[in-house]
């Protein structure tokens, strides 16, 4: 599982690619990380450097891999400090030739699929759910896919299964109210590092920390809720909804979906800080990492309280309010810790 991918000239990636996942992560970070590793980049540095909160009301889709990126590309928004780019493509016909072409060019295509048709997923022939996986080889009869999300799988599946999953309408499914009702539509994501990666020296790490803090502390706009202010406003709106209503159900579904990858990014940023702390022997970075991790864990409380209300009708608006308040409090503390860490970095440069 730790073999970096290589590409042969016949249009297929001959070697397995590297599976990558984290406990708070989804298929979004996992697949992008596999693509980054394939191209020689460290996913914790690239995807773990940025940390932010952004929400555009109404702009979300019921997919495990949703992340509000506009006006940037998905990869660009998830890798704000690197020239990482992505573009969605939609293939016609069976579309496999497009994926073969990408593989021949050394690109690992990331396909939007429905778990219902994937023999290795727990949801196989049971639950419809939108998901991403990496395609790394195609033969006349099989498609080789890589999926790091538990239970991790890497290997061949019949072309018919892949096409059914890749072209699925992913109909609404009561067994998954969060990630069904989003057609796969033969979509696939092409990523590339569009320029040289920055040198991850102390100056760069300090720049990353100050940019993230500044973004969290800037004023939220009317259209897009951003930063501490935007998060507070969003959670206030969420907690004000009447439990059990259609509007509340819709909002709780959105909460679960949009916050998955916000939480994933938070956990990854903490890992980035810990890595930098070890590398540069700056304790303030490790302390900031603990603060950022506490925010990630605060998201668990908000997300799961909301999810249990949505799925099991366990409505506890008082708990949701308390966890929301705590999440924002932890965020404020973490930002202070990041400022301390940035100051410590300045003293080392």
């Amino acid at each position: 599982m730790s073999i970096s991918g290589t590409t042969d000239i016949s249009g297929t990636t001959a070697q397995p690619v590297q599976l990558w996942t984290r406990d708070l992560g989804s298929c979004l970070h996992g697949t992008l990380a596999t693509a980054l590793i394939h191209d020689g980049h460290d996913p914790v540095t690239v995807l773990g450097a940025p940390w932010e909160f952004r929400r555009h009301p109404g702009a979300w889709s019921s997919e495990e891999y949703f992340f509000f990126a506009e006006p940037d590309s998905l990869a660009k928004r998830l890798a704000l400090f690197h020239p990482f780019e992505s573009a969605w493509h939609r293939s016609g016909g069976d579309g496999l030739d497009d994926l073969r072409e990408a593989l021949a060019a050394g690109v690992l295509p990331i396909a939007a699929v429905d778990n219902f048709y994937l023999p290795f997923r727990p949801a196989f022939h049971d639950v419809h759910a939108a998901h991403l996986l990496v395609v790394y080889r195609i033969t006349d009869t099989e498609v080789y896919v890589s999926d790091a999300q538990p239970p991790a799988f890497q290997g061949a599946i019949p072309i018919a299964d892949f096409l059914a999953s890749w072209g699925s309408l992913n109909p609404p499914d009561d067994a998954d109210v969060f990630f069904s009702a989003s057609p796969s539509g033969r979509r696939w994501l092409r990523t590339r590092m569009a320029g040289p990666a920055p040198e991850p020296d102390l100056d760069w790490v300090g720049h990353v920390l100050r940019e993230n803090v500044a973004r969290y502390r800037q004023e939220s706009t009317a259209q897009t809720q951003t930063g501490v202010m935007g998060l507070r406003h969003y959670l206030d709106q969420l907690c004000a909804l009447t439990p059990g209503t259609d509007a509340a159900s819709e909002a709780l579904s959105e909460l679960y979906v949009i916050s998955w990858n916000i939480q994933a990014q938070t956990g990854l940023h903490a890992e980035f800080l810990r890595t930098q702390s070890t590398k540069w022997r700056i304790r303030e970075l490790a302390e900031a990492a603990a603060g950022v991790d506490a925010v990630a864990h605060g998201w668990t409380a908000v997300r799961m309280t909301g999810a249990h209300a949505r799925v099991w009708e366990r409505h506890r608006p008082d708990e949701l309010r308390r966890h929301s308040t705590e999440l924002v409090r932890r965020l404020e503390v973490a930002l202070d810790q990041l400022e301390l860490a940035a100051d410590a970095l300045s003293r080392h440069t």
Binding site: G298, T300, R303
Partner: peptide, 8 residues
């Protein structure tokens, strides 16, 4: 056990 990581 926890449904995702939790801290309280």
């Amino acid at each position: 056990a926890s449904e995702r990581r939790s801290e309280d």
